[in-house]
Design a protein around this nucleic acid. Structure first.
Lengths: 153, 153
DNA sequence: CAATATTTGACAATATGTTGTCAATATGGT
DNA sequence: ACCATATTGACAACATATTGTCAAATATTG
């Protein structure tokens, strides 16, 4: 198989796996009022020491500012998130979890753990690391190309 | 790093890479009237010896029937695809490319080749294979769970 | 053969994500 | 301090994908 076929296969598999993961995640947390996308927003907030703005969350998740903005506004409406003034930037307020948000996120984690265990059980540990490193390299390559794109404008 | 953290990292990287790939693909074929999604539909049709129905394309791509259905109808409207009677199934007609569709797909391939070469250039060949195998195993695991889900209904 | 189950295309509603645009706010260079 | 530039939240338009529902066509089972 040529190098091009190899990378193309990988790309198609990323598309398929992405869909399967979103579906599985949705199913995992549906009854606690979450979706994969909202769960990911909570994760981005939980996993940083410093509170983030909407734009900051977007950068962490690799999504557009606007996609995150809409999710955040909906989640504020649902009582999962709240905004706090940002001493460093009047416009870019900080996104924080409410008590409810924290409880829901904790519940999501509790379900994620055994699910992830089952998924990883018969997979080779090194292969997971190798794959993650490779995917990250690919994405960084693409992101770099994207930056050059914008610079050309 | 625990096995759970490892697989979770991989999952988040799949989400990010998926977005970056869709964006790059869109940019690659935008000016010939394609998008990543439409390009993938053409690819699914091109890569099979036997013509496929809408549902068949969906299975190949790992998407829902309905997602493919809408794409196919739009692409028929744009003159890229056409339907042919299916001797084995009156309802499930076969999706074929028009001459225009074939030309557009050929143009997309011509752009994909050097792009994929550049992407794969400094990546380890074995790592690509390992990653593809791992992602496929993950997806098949998830698809199997999905099948069990449906059986429970 | 008849009853039942599955597959399929169609349509609608909704969730997710992108791009484009704008004004407000920061930031950096001169 | 000033001006050009970049970042940010907001809103709108659109592409993509999922689920739910339905009726038609096919496949399966007793």
């Amino acid at each position: 198989m040529s190098q091009i076929e190899g990378i193309t296969d990988l790309i198609l598999e990323v598309f398929r796996l992405n869909g399967a993961l979103v579906h599985a995640g949705d199913g995992l947390v549906a009854d606690i009022g979450l979706t994969s996308a909202r769960w990911q927003v909570l994760g981005a907030i939980a996993l940083t020491t410093q509170p983030l703005s909407v734009a900051g969350i977007a950068r962490t998740m690799g999504l557009s500012r606007q996609a995150v903005l809409r999710l955040v506004k909906e989640m504020i409406g649902d009582g999962l998130l709240r905004l706090a003034e940002n001493p460093h930037h009047r416009r870019a307020r900080l996104v924080l979890m409410t008590v409810t948000g924290e409880a829901v996120y904790a519940a999501a984690i509790a379900r994620h753990r055994p699910w992830a265990e089952g998924l990883a059980r018969d997979l080779d540990r090194d292969a997971i690391g190798t794959a993650t490193t490779l995917l990250r390299a690919l994405r960084q390559h693409l992101d770099a190309a994207r930056t050059r794109e914008v610079d050309d404008d």
